[in-house]
């Protein structure tokens, strides 16, 4: 039990998907202008990462590995992820039409969020069992959501700050992200997972 907890903390904070592994940066810069969209995006992505990691684990263990089809991994995984995104879209539309309205265009774009494919590929390399890999995927996506919400909060304040003209927009965003990444480096040492 203890190693699972340590692994989850490691995946969420120490090796944070965005700030340490550099995955999902497009959505990190793209949809963090407001806290509520960032939180919604984090929620939807958490769902997609967890579901597609479970499906990818099954595909890898029962289909690709036994038949020696490792070279088809990239193509298969992206198809599984696209289906998981479609499934999420249908679920969100049924369960919460207001969230569906809010996320709009961003939902289908989760397919090209490299955090989803990245976590699935990391799991293949680490050879974890089903429970461990599901927990790892869930913790990673929680870390993703956390950083999205924190950064959205920073950017809401930044929108009111007088930024030099040349730095306006993305550049100052990158510099703030750099400071945030430095803050998260403080977590290294808690766990090596």
């Amino acid at each position: 039990m203890k190693e699972y907890a340590l692994m989850m903390i490691g995946a969420a904070l120490v090796n944070n998907v965005i700030l340490a592994r550099f995955l999902g940066l497009c959505s990190f810069m793209g949809v963090t202008t407001r806290i509520d969209t960032a939180a919604g995006m984090g929620l939807a992505t958490t769902f997609v990462i967890t579901v597609s990691s479970m499906a990818d684990w099954a595909v890898q263990t029962y289909l690709l590995a036994p038949y020696g089809l490792g070279f088809l991994r990239t193509v298969t995984f992206i198809l599984v992820i696209a289906s998981a995104v479609q499934f999420t879209e249908l679920t969100v539309r049924k369960v919460s039409p207001s969230l569906f309205q809010m996320l709009g265009i961003y939902l289908p774009l989760i397919t090209t969020n490299c955090a989803v494919l990245g976590v699935a590929l990391l799991l293949v390399e680490s050879h974890m069992n089903f429970l461990a890999s599901t927990l790892f995927a869930f913790a990673s996506s929680l870390g993703y959501s956390l950083v999205m919400v924190i950064f959205a909060g920073l950017r809401e304040r930044l929108a009111l700050a007088p930024v030099p003209r040349l730095f306006a927009g993305p550049p100052i965003g990158f510099i703030v992200a750099s400071l945030l990444a430095m803050a998260f480096m403080g977590f290294s040492g808690i766990s090596t997972g």
């Binding site: 550099f22 040349l166 730095f167 993305p170 550049p171 990158f174 992200a177 480096m185």
Partner: peptide, 29 residues
């Protein structure tokens, strides 16, 4: 990791500066 964000941000500014020197309209977004 922090260096990656920092350098990318600064180089975007450098490109804007060069474009501005060349008399081009700079893209803010």
């Amino acid at each position: 990791p922090p260096g990656g964000f920092l350098v990318t941000g600064l180089l975007v500014v450098v490109k804007r500066l060069l474009d501005l020197r060349a008399g081009k309209e700079i893209q803010m977004s």
